[in-house]
Simulated assay, not measured.
Amino acid sequence: MSADCLFCKIVAGEIPATVVHEGERTLAFRDIGPQASTHVLVVPREHHEDALALATDAPGLLDDLVTAAGEVAKSEGITESGYRLVFNTGPDAGRTVFHAHLHVLGGEQLGLFGRV
């Protein structure tokens, strides 16, 4: 845990959040500034600064985040219509909380994102 980390404080129950899924190593809660009808953040319970640190330091935990994101999508009823999983890494990506977190976005038609 990091004493000054917003998401660590949410995990510890010091700051309220609308929790939608709990796992042994993960916690998922609604984003307070949603960018889609469904916008949930999935975070590891332990502190890792970003996705790269998470993958390097605890690769199995990265799997747990993606699995939890799938459970969130299922419980939110967006598995059939589709959803997007996003990690923002670094200031140019718009990241403001330096605790690895995976965005689950869906529930509506999302704009095109890059080229496939």
Rank of each mutant, 00 (worst) to 15 (best):
Y83D: 08
A93M: 04
I15G: 01
V66I: 15
V72S: 09
S75R: 14
T79H: 01
G60Y: 00
L110W: 02
V11K: 01
S37Y: 00
A12I: 03
G13T: 11
A53F: 00
T18K: 14
E71W: 03
K74Q: 14
L41V: 07
T79M: 10
T89S: 14
C8R: 07
F7E: 08
L110G: 04
D63N: 12
I78S: 08
L61T: 06
G94A: 04
M1E: 08
T96S: 15
A55N: 06
D31Y: 10
D57M: 08
A51L: 14
G94E: 10
Q35M: 12
E46A: 14
G107M: 04
F113A: 14
G60P: 01
H103S: 03
C8N: 11
L6P: 04
V11T: 05
I78V: 15
L105W: 01
V40K: 01
V104I: 14
L65T: 07
I78E: 13
M1C: 05
P44Y: 00
E24R: 08
Y83I: 09
A93D: 07
Q109G: 12
I32C: 06
V72L: 02
A69Y: 03
V86Q: 08
G77Y: 10
T89L: 13
L62E: 03
G106P: 09
R115V: 12
G94N: 10
L112D: 15
L112S: 15
E24F: 00
V116G: 07
I10M: 08
E46N: 07
H21G: 02
P44K: 03
D92T: 13
G94F: 06
G90S: 11
A36R: 10
I10S: 08
V43N: 02
D31V: 09
G33I: 00
